[in-house]
């Protein structure tokens, strides 16, 4: 009996415990749930949120600055910028538009790569497949093509703006050079992409384009003094570009690799330098206060330029 009692006592003990726990839970459940739900009303106080965003995003100067500085994507920007530079009329937004189009092109380009084989047998069929069967395939291809054209126009207008505002002048000379290279790379990106549909348009455009390489002085077999280095159609610079003496399967593969991997990588590196230098050269150049002819200083030797944290000119008073 004692055993039974003990046993039953124990059993009742466990049962009671569970029941007690359940009762306690029933009492506190409401409160805890309420706490949790109330907590969600202020998501910025949750551990999850705080682990992602290190600063509060409320509307006070310090946090406005920190939200830019502590975000890896935004920290390309300084915390503060020249008041007048935020208007459209100075920069025309062309540099930013170019970069945005580069992102759009990378995004649509990666999606296009899922449907494309860089082989003579399949390339053209892949485009037909993309245009007729792949959901939104036509839109995808159109967007990639038009964004590429738009990017070239945006690059040119960006260069035009930088020229017209004299922004290439000291201390930004070097960044202008990086920009020129980026422009050339943009056009090469577009050009290498032209061949990829493997249609008549791309084939003849690339044929015309690479035929010029035949005539490279010294390095092309039809170029002046090409014979001097023993150039033939099978070892000259055009052969290196096409991977053959005609635009064929190897040329398609080379164009594909240049277009999808090599040039984008190079462009990304140069872009990094370009943006970095914009900041290190003192932010964007203006709109700066005008300088007068009477204020030109007599100096012939380049002097070191004191870095300023933002786009404010040295002559700002």
């Amino acid at each position: 009996m004692p055993e039974e009692n003990g046993g039953s006592k124990e059993k009742t003990g466990v049962l009671e415990k569970v029941q007690a726990d359940a009762a306690a839970l029933r009492e506190t459940l409401k409160e805890k749930t309420k706490q949790q739900v109330d907590g969600l009303k202020e998501p910025e106080k949750t551990q999850l949120y705080r682990s992602m965003f290190r600063v509060k995003h409320d509307d006070e100067p310090r946090n406005r600055a920190l939200s830019v500085l502590s975000n890896v994507f935004f920290h390309l920007h300084p915390a503060k910028v020249n008041r007048d530079a935020t208007k459209y009329n100075f920069t025309w937004g062309m540099g930013g538009i170019t970069f945005y189009l580069f992102i759009v092109l990378t995004f649509t380009g990666v999606l296009l790569m899922f449907y494309y084989h860089p082989t003579k047998v399949q390339a053209f069929r892949d485009i037909l497949y993309l245009e007729n069967d792949v959901p939104f395939g036509k839109l995808l291809r159109n967007m990639h093509r038009w964004a590429a054209h738009l990017m070239i126009i945006a690059v040119w207008l960006h260069m035009f703006r930088v020229f017209m505002t004299g922004s290439y002048k000291r201390p930004r000379e070097f960044n202008w050079c990086v920009g020129v290279l980026l422009m050339v790379l943009t056009m090469l990106l577009s050009f290498t992409g032209y061949l990829l549909p493997d249609d008549q348009l791309g084939f003849w455009a690339v044929t015309v384009g690479t035929n010029m390489a035949r005539a490279t002085p010294f390095l092309g077999h039809e170029g002046p003094l090409g014979g001097l280095l023993g150039m033939t159609p099978y070892n000259d610079v055009r052969f290196a570009l096409l991977g053959g003496s005609i635009v064929d399967a190897n040329a398609l593969l080379r164009a594909y690799i240049w277009h999808c991997i090599a040039i984008p990588l190079i462009v990304s590196i140069f872009l990094g330098v370009h943006f970095w230098r914009v900041r290190k050269d003192g932010g964007i150049s203006g709109p700066a206060p005008v300088m007068l002819e009477s204020e030109i200083k007599e100096e012939r030797n380049p002097r070191p330029v004191v870095l300023r944290p933002s786009g404010m000119s040295q002559h700002d008073k």
């Binding site: 600055a65 915390a79 503060k80 910028v81 008041r83 935020t86 937004g93 930013g96 538009i97 933002s310």
Partner: peptide
């Protein structure tokens, strides 16, 4: 002389990005 990048500059950037996207979409 200087204003905060957020929101004064970045709202412009996002706006321009939206406009470019819409333009590109319509064109495509």
């Amino acid at each position: 002389r200087e204003v905060h990048t957020w929101p004064y500059l970045m709202r412009m950037e996002f706006l321009v990005a939206i406009i470019v996207t819409v333009l590109l979409m319509v064109w495509s």
